[in-house]
Every structure is written in structure tokens, then in C-alpha cells.
Design a protein around this nucleic acid. Structure first.
Lengths: 184, 184
DNA sequence: GAAATGATTAGAGAATTATCTAATCATTAT
DNA sequence: ATAATGATTAGATAATTCTCTAATCATTTC
């Protein structure tokens, strides 16, 4: 799963598919391929180098020519293997967050404040959903809202500010527009 | 093997890989995907339609949303299946031609003239290799060269002209520059 | 039926990239 | 060594296409 996107981009080209199909039958070299495909050697070289970089083909000098051959193992793998990206899919993030939330909330109340930073952030974002975007809150209002979930509104208020979820100026608080609290 | 190039081109895109990865976990719909990927619904729609056309995903209306899901069977197949093109690889054409030639020639002589047009053309092209590019030949010379392979130089000469391999004007003959006789 | 919401289409701008020519590098043959 | 041949690199051009905005279509809810 190194860089599937790059690999797919390299395969997804007419000329390179033609080259791969020829190499499927027999090893070949730049000039011969260029002639068979009615292209210049420069163009064929450009494509072969691209494919070589990603391990699609291998090359080795054989007397006069530099012979290119397929890396056949690669093509045995199912397409499935090639679409997985490094990116953590948002949906599995969501699943994880739901798990955390359901673990720390019981009957709508927060049982205790997680010690792990990551989990604490998830919990804070969940509580933040009670706040409206764009509206200003007094400290009293903030405490009152948080108090619905847990007695220690001071700690939680401080955490929410620490995570950048709530903004604060003097006695006024508001929900920040951090895209991380986005509710999709 | 309908149109592998088109299919690969559709898979080989960052955004579409992201979408596929999400759909790998759970079905989804345009708006949700757009939000998760920080794109406009128009863009997501554009990609989903592309993938739908090639059978990568399916969609069906479910109450309020149009749900998109993966066509999972497709991804089980090995990459190998996706690189085969409709194009007849030149190298297997070559192999076929060699077979035909070795079938009709014995000890350097043509045993008989093939009745199949396709095979006849291959044989004529083989004989044409005795002619030089750019040089003019008299009818006598042409007959003499052909006679090395077969008695009936008249028929063969006529066939070679018929296939456009030899050009003729009055009593003069020459090898045409048809790219089909190209020897790479 | 009107309003709301989600999906799609059309058109335009920006970025990527396949291909060519020309020049250079690397290896083999004379 | 020098010439010849194949491979590669650099730079320029042209084509493709991803993404957006704005407008329209389709379905559901009031």
C-alpha cells in the first residue's frame, strides 16, 4: 500500500497499456517497442522509466540492448489491493468516535473525563454540539450547558478552550469555526 | 475486457480513490461524501457518475438519499485482468506470421499458394523481403526473384500488386512504402 | 401546490501530462 | 581512439480533465 494512486496513474495510460501487453508476451527494448507502437524512442523511454520507478517493469542490459520485462507478481494481486489509500477514511474515524462517546456517556451524562488526550478531544467535541455557531455565551451560560453532562464544568470549559473548540475573550465565549468540529 | 483503459483511468484519481475507500466501509450519498472530503456536491457527483458508468459503483434511491455502493465483485479480480487491451499485440501477430510462413515454405521454396487471403498476404510480404526499398525492377527481374520460391511467378506477381506490396507502371515495378511491410 | 433539500448538468479556469525535437550519455564495434 | 547505435534527458507544445460556480431537475414534506 505504498503509493497506489501513483501506481494506478501509471497504468492508466493507453501507450503504457500497449507496452505492458507486449511485455506480457515477450521481453523487449526501447527501439523495438518504439517501432511497433509507431512512437519515438524518447517517448517509449519516458513511459518505461515511469513504470520502472513504480516496480511495474524491470530492466537489465543484455549485450547490445536494455531489455525490459514485466514484474509479473504484481499483476497477480486483486484490484482490491490497489485501491486502498493511506488516508484514514473519515467513516472509520466516525465509527471510532461513536465508540468512544458511547463508552463515556451513560444516560446522557459523562461518567468521567478521559485521561487520553485523543479521547478527551472527542468528548469535548461532542459536548460542543450543544453550542450554536456564531452565538456569544456568558461564562454562566457555558457552565450551565456543560453542567448538563458533568459537575466539573470548570475543567471541561478549560479543556474546550485548550482544544480550540471554544474561543474566549474576557467574560465572553463562542464556538470556534474550526473545521475539526464540523458535523458534516 | 470491454474497455480496461477507461476503467483504469477512472480508478486512477485521488478523489475517486478516496470515495472508493469510504464506500469500502459503508454505503454513502453525495452530500455526505462531499462534506467528508471537503468538496462540493457537484464535484462528488461528477466522480460518482464516472464510476457508475464503468460499473465500479451502483446507486439506488433510498427514501431521501441516493445511496451509492461498491460493485465488490469487480475488485476481486487480479490486476492482470485489467491490463489486457483489445489491441492485438504486434508480437503475437509476429508469432502467427512465423507459423504461417514455416507452414508454406519448405527448404526455402513455397510449397503452394495459400487460398486464405490473410495467409496469402503474409506469404507475399515474406517474398517481398527479397526486394530493396527505392529500387526499380524490370518485369524480368521480378519474375526471376519470385521464381526462386515458386514456378508460378505470374500469379504471385499479380497477388503482390493486388495487395499493394509491389507498385507497377508500364514495365517497371518497385516495392511500395506501405507501412504494413515495415520490418521494424 | 409551495418550499426545502438533495442530485445533476453546463460552462469556465487551472493544473497535469503525453508527445515531439534536439541534444547528450553509454556501450559496442571497427 | 573513433564511429555507430541504442538509451536517456531537457524543453516546448497541445490535449485532457479536475474542480468550481451557477442554474436546473427530482423528490419529499408541510
Amino acid at each position: 500500500m505504498k503509493d497506489n494512486l501513483a501506481l494506478l496513474k501509471v497504468i492508466a495510460d493507453k501507450t503504457r497499456l500497449d507496452i505492458l501487453n507486449i511485455l506480457l508476451n515477450e521481453d523487449s527494448y526501447v527501439e523495438k517497442l518504439a517501432c511497433e507502437l509507431s512512437l519515438t524512442p524518447a517517448t517509449v523511454c519516458y513511459h518505461l522509466k515511469k513504470m520502472e520507478m513504480l516496480g511495474l517493469v524491470k530492466c537489465s542490459r543484455s549485450q547490445f540492448y536494455i531489455m525490459y520485462s514485466l514484474n509479473r507478481e504484481l499483476f497477480e494481486k486483486p484490484l482490491y489491493e490497489f485501491i486502498k489509500t493511506d488516508r484514514i477514511p473519515v467513516s472509520s474515524t466516525e465509527k471510532y468516535e461513536k465508540e468512544v462517546i458511547s463508552h463515556f456517556f451513560r444516560y446522557g451524562k459523562l461518567t468521567h473525563i478521559p485521561s487520553q488526550r485523543k479521547k478527551r478531544e472527542i468528548i469535548m467535541k461532542e459536548i460542543a454540539k450543544q453550542f450554536e455557531q456564531g452565538r456569544k455565551y456568558s461564562e454562566k451560560e457555558v457552565n450551565s450547558i456543560i453542567h448538563r453532562f458533568h459537575e466539573d464544568h470548570c475543567t471541561i470549559r478549560r479543556e474546550m478552550i485548550g482544544f480550540g473548540i471554544l474561543g474566549r475573550e474576557k467574560e465572553t465565549y463562542w464556538l470556534t469555526e474550526n473545521e475539526k468540529n464540523n458535523n458534516c
